[in-house]
Amino acid sequence: MVGIVSYGAYIPRFRIDTGEIARVWGEDPNRAKKSLLVESKAVAGPDEDACTMAVEASRYAIRRWGGDPADIDVIYVGSESHPYAVKPTASILADALGASPHVMAVDLEFACKAGTAGLISAMAMVKSGMARFGLAVGSDTAQGAPGDALEYTAASGAAAFIVGSQGVIARLNGFHSVTTDTPDFWRRAGRPYPRHGGRFTGQPAYFKHILMAARGLMEKMGTGPEDYDFAIFHQPNTKFPLSAGKRLGFPKEKILPGIVVNKIGNTYAASMLMGLARVLDKAEPGQRILAVSFGSGAGSDAFDFTVTENIEAIRVDGVPTVDELIERGRFVDYAIYAKYRGKILMGDEE
C-alpha cells in the first residue's frame, strides 16, 4: 500500500481584503467577493518566500509523522515562485529539515500543479521501492501584476505531504493525469508578473482539464461521484471548483470542505493540496476523496484516496489545522501589502 503518511500546511499571517485591492484600483469593492467569492487572500511577510513556507509546512508534516527526516529519500518542491531561478529550493529544504545529504531533491514547475506532480512522483518512487519515504511540497508566493484581475486572488501558502508505504493515513487507490499545450497563463523568464488569457483560462483550460482528469480517473476506477465523500479541486477562486464539481455531479456539500480560497486566495502550487489538507483535518477512516489539481499550460492530476484508521494518530497537539492557520490572519492595507510583496520600487542599497 502506498499513500500519504502525514501532511502539514502553512499560511502566512498577513491578509488583505479583496475590497482593499479594489479600492486602490478604482473598482467595485465587492467585485471579487461577489463574482469570485473570494473575501481575502494570504500575504507572505517580507522575510518569507516559497522556500521558508515550504520548510514550515514540511516541519509540521514531520511533527505529525514523528519519523526521522533522514528516512526521506526523495523531495519534490513544486512552485512558480522559487526564490532562485537557478538553485533549488529543494536543497535548502532538505538541509533545513535534516533530510540531507542522502536524498534526491529537485524543484518542479508546472504553474499551479507542480505540487501535485511532486506528490504523484514521490508516491511512484515509494511504490517502486526506490524510496522509503518521500516529501512533496507545493509552495507559492504568487504574484499578480498590480491592478490585474489576478491580484485579487494570487496568494501565499504551502502544503507538504509525506508519502510512504507504512503508517498510511490516506491510501492512493488510483491516479490519472492529463496534459495538453494550452497557453492560458504564463510568465516568461526574467519577467516579474505573469500574463493570462482572460476568459480563455476558464472553459478551454481549467474546466476542460479538470473534467477530463476527473472523468478519466473515475472511468479507470469504475467509480462515480456517489462513491466519494469529498471532492477537492484546484481553486483559483471559489466559483470554479463549485462549478467543476457540479458538472461532474458532486453536490456542494462534498466540495465545500475542501474550499480554502474564499479566505486565503489562490495559493497556486499549494491550492488543491491545501484543500486536501483541510479535508484530512476532518476526514474519518474509510472516507474516500477525489482530488484534482490544475496547472496552467496546461494539465490536471487526479487522485483517488481512501482515509485509513491511522488518521487519528497524526492529529497531534502543536500542529495547527488549516482552519487554525486561516483564522490567525492579520489584515494589512494595500500599502503594507505592496511593501511586503516587493511591489514598491526601492532605492539602491548602500
Partner: peptide, 20 residues
C-alpha cells in the same frame, strides 16, 4: 523557532535563511 529569510546579498546575490 521558525524558518525565515534573514538577509540577502542584494537582489542578485545569495539569500541567507535562518531562525527567527
Amino acid at each position: 523557532m521558525v524558518f525565515r529569510r534573514i538577509r540577502q546579498e542584494g537582489a542578485s546575490g545569495i539569500i541567507h535563511y535562518g531562525y527567527k
